[in-house]
């Protein structure tokens, strides 16, 4: 880290000195993306509205009877959450790719796999977390029985962390492709299935009066694994997309 001034001699530095600014770079990137979302709230709201709309389709398509709705509610809520996550993942790197800042991010003197974590964190904070907080509201619409609301919110919050991380790999691979969004869905949906299984499993357990925390622990383990390995894959996929 060094002070900045307009008349300093350019000096050749070793990477270790430059690497000291990693925290600053992470914070700046995190802040930059967060400000971006705040200035264009419509982009962050779209997946939430989509989530609500998909939920609305089910009573219309199946039946408004509370018993039937309650039966399908956990699955419907989770599937809708996965689909709306897909909607937002396509845009995760696209704007950065198009305006050239992604290329600049790749040229920063810091590990790309750490810098992308800042971006993924913003994605989770602005899509996954709001989704998890909003889900109980839609649970009411689907007559979701008492006792599973907490499980719904908490598992969605943790599970959407996995989804942001794994999805970012697909987003990185498809960011340079003209019709990347379609391909993105095909690439990452199979990888989301374990999260779906344990997310709905936790709700099933909560509904039948059992323990749902063990399920949450499994999702937590998946999140830990994703945190440890996905950033490397995201960085590799971005390098492929930007430079071939």
């Amino acid at each position: 880290m060094s002070a900045c001034s307009t008349d300093v001699e350019p000096a050749v530095v070793a990477v270790k000195e430059a690497g000291a600014g990693l925290g600053m770079a992470l914070w700046a990137t995190f802040q930059r993306d967060l400000v971006g979302v705040a200035r264009r709230p419509a982009d962050a709201l779209t997946p939430l509205v989509f989530f609500a709309m998909v939920i609305t389709l089910f009573p219309l398509g199946i039946s408004p009877e509370p018993e039937r709705l309650a039966w399908i509610a956990p699955g419907v809520l989770w599937v809708a959450a996965l689909l709306s996550a897909l909607l937002s993942l396509d845009g995760l790197f696209r704007a950065d790719y198009e305006d050239g800042t992604l290329e600049q991010l790749l040229l920063a003197p810091h590990p790309l796999s750490l810098l992308v974590v800042a971006k993924v964190l913003v994605h989770w904070l602005t899509t996954g977390l709001p989704l998890a907080l909003m889900a109980p509201l839609l649970g009411v619409l689907l007559a979701l029985p008492q006792g599973s609301y907490l499980a719904l919110s908490v598992t969605l919050a943790v599970g959407s962390g996995c989804i942001s991380l794994i999805g970012a790999i697909g987003a990185g691979l498809t960011v340079g492709l003209a019709r990347g969004g379609m391909l993105l869905s095909l690439l990452v949906l199979p990888l989301f299935m374990p999260v779906l299984i344990f997310g709905t499993g936790a709700m099933g357990a909560a509904l039948s009066g059992g323990e749902w925390l063990p399920h949450l622990a499994v999702i937590g383990a998946m999140l830990a694994l994703a945190l440890a390995s996905a950033p490397l894959a995201i960085a590799a996929s971005l390098r492929i997309s930007v430079h071939g």
Partner: peptide
Amino acid sequence: YLGHAPGIKAHLTAMENLRWYQALAGHR
């Protein structure tokens, strides 16, 4: 490195754009 694209984020101000680049380079 300055590439083909200007590398400017449309929704940030001139100042904010510049600040991000300086932070990325480790210059306060």
